Amino acid sequence: KKKGGHMPSWWWAVAAWWLVAAPVRSQGEGPKPAVEEYVVVVDLGSTGSRAFVYEFVEDTVHGNKGKKVTPGISSFSGKDVQFDEYFRPLIDHSKGLVPEEQWAQTPIFLRATAGMRLLPEAEQERLFAGAFASLSGESNPFQVARSHLGTISGEDEGYYGALSVNFLAKRIGRNLRSLVAEEEMPQGGAATSVVDVSPDGTVAPLGPALAPVMGALDLGGSSTQIVFQPLSWLDCTSAQGAQFQEESAAGCPANATLHDGVLDDEDLFVHSFLSYGVDRVRERLWTHLIEASPSSSSLVANPCGFHGRMETWQARELAGSGDATACSQLLREVLFPECSALAGKDGGKQPAETAVEANAWCPLDGVKHTPPVRGVPFVAMSVFFFAIDCMREIT
């Protein structure tokens, strides 16, 4: 998809599903209409690859739970690998969901995310060439072309997350148009003015309110994305929004309302933080611990690990101590080094919280300024969900 353009009818629907695997069923009663077409999409994530099959039935998308294999194909970087056995479980899973008589006309698309974005383009091409050669063999009955394999940008990944959230929440339809009634819009409608009240009581107009587009937070293995629609165009044209764009070269919406009522990527603030996925941050945290410990020490205490859990990293043993307070401070040092430096002033006497407040915006990945987030509902997905689900199991 190109900036400013609209996605092909089949691709936006796939994009609305491939990061959030949840089934959608026809709401009408009676016999199921004839299937228009099938599409197989393989999400080549940093921790594994997942195959999903989608049916397009009139204006409804029918999805499935999907099949996963590990590891992610980016882990094969620098290695000679035959992908036949790697993809076989995904192909067999998809063959079981697509009628045999439609295999030949069903396309298969493979899209990689942050794990591949971290690799040089030449290495990405080598891995994709190997994957394409495998999928061009007799074991794959689906339509495949070299153009069906590729790496998407972090901004597109975030945009697809927004499509997923708003489509599943029934806020947009298959044509990407808003399904939210005007009376449900914040402040009573798109024409209503929104104001900002400062601490001293000054009231400043911020422009028209927007349709309630939900924001998305996506935490993967190698990157994390944030995407939302700022409350007004002034949030992006303000000094804060302008400085963000200058510092990060990230996109900021050009308009305060949806283009013709359609949720387009130009309507959203999107930023992808490469190398800030859970696996990459964990590795940086472990490296930080090792570098700060005496080289003569056989064990390195890891406050972020469960008590007694052992990990091996860079030929050193890390022993979990389960210290949540120390873990929080350690993560602050790894994620927000500039704020941590402020907290260390005056011989470490200045509380970290005070230093953070004094710095106003702690930069993450060098990004200091984003449009203000006011009244935007968010859905957090992927590892955000897995972490909370894990806490439910162990508490």
Rank of each mutant, 00 (worst) to 15 (best):
Pro71Asp: 09
Ile73Pro: 03
Ser74Met: 02
Ser75Pro: 01
Ser75Tyr: 00
Ser75Ile: 03
Phe76Leu: 10
Ser77Leu: 00
Ser77Ile: 01
Gly78Met: 00
Gly78Trp: 02
Lys79Gln: 14
Asp80Lys: 11
Asp80Glu: 13
Asp80Gln: 12
Val81Asp: 09
Phe83Gly: 12
Phe83Cys: 10
Asp84Trp: 01
Asp84Thr: 14
Tyr86Asp: 14
Arg88Leu: 15
Ile91Cys: 12
Asp92Val: 10
Asp92Gln: 13
His93Leu: 09
Ser94Asn: 06
Leu97Trp: 01
Leu97Gln: 10
Val98Leu: 07
Pro99Met: 12
Pro99Ala: 15
Glu100Cys: 10
Gln102Thr: 06
Gln102Tyr: 08
Trp103Ile: 11
Ala104His: 07
Gln105Gly: 15
Pro107Trp: 05
Pro107Met: 11
Pro107Glu: 14
Pro107Gly: 13
Ile108Arg: 06
Phe109Pro: 03
Phe109Ala: 13
Leu110Cys: 13
Thr113Cys: 05
Ala114Cys: 03
Leu118Asn: 06
Leu119Gly: 05
Gln124Trp: 01
Glu125Arg: 14
Leu127Tyr: 02
Phe128Gln: 08
Ala131Tyr: 00
Phe132Thr: 14
Phe132Glu: 15
Ala133Gln: 13
Ser134Met: 09
Ser139Ile: 07
Asn140Ser: 10
Pro141Ile: 08
Pro141Tyr: 04
Gln143Glu: 15
Ala145His: 13
Ala145Asn: 12
Arg146Cys: 13
His148Ala: 11
His148Glu: 13
Leu149Tyr: 01
Gly150Val: 00
Gly150Glu: 03
Ser153Phe: 00
Glu155Trp: 01
Glu155Asp: 11
Asp156Glu: 14
Glu157Val: 04
Gly158Thr: 03
Tyr159Thr: 09
Gly161Ala: 10
Ala162Gly: 10
Leu163Arg: 02
Arg171Lys: 13
Arg174Ile: 10
Arg177Gln: 10
Ser178Pro: 03
Leu179Arg: 02
Val180Trp: 00
Ala181Asn: 07
Glu183Leu: 03
Glu184Asp: 15
Met185Ser: 12
